[in-house]
């Protein structure tokens, strides 16, 4: 059986830390960093990358177009 594995890349420079992506993620992949970016925002990053399915929901709700999404099919060990 195959399953979808995903990953996101957050543009941490333009992220404003609004956390809408955190809410939108169905698998709790995203969190806000403790550190701030140059604008002073706690930017989003993958806290739990293993859980990402590449569904793109985070990118859909992102107001600042900060998120790039990748997705691949991976064969699961039987």
């Amino acid at each position: 059986m195959a399953k979808m594995k995903g990953a996101i890349v957050v543009d941490m420079v333009s992220c404003k830390g609004c956390s809408l992506c955190v809410e939108a993620c169905p698998t709790q992949v995203i969190g806000l960093a403790d550190e701030v970016n140059a604008k002073g925002y706690n930017y989003a990053y993958m806290v739990n990358p293993e859980a990402c399915t590449g569904c793109s929901n985070c990118a859909m709700v992102c107001p600042d177009s900060c998120i790039t999404v990748y997705r691949m099919r991976v064969a699961e060990p039987a």
Binding site: K5, G6, P49, S65, T68, V69, Y70, R71, M72
Partner: peptide
């Protein structure tokens, strides 16, 4: 075999990017 993030983040796996 575990897939690493590096394996996923490749142009052929791109599903969403900024317009």
């Amino acid at each position: 075999m575990e897939v690493s993030i590096k394996d996923i983040i490749k142009p052929e796996n791109l599903v969403y990017q900024k317009s």
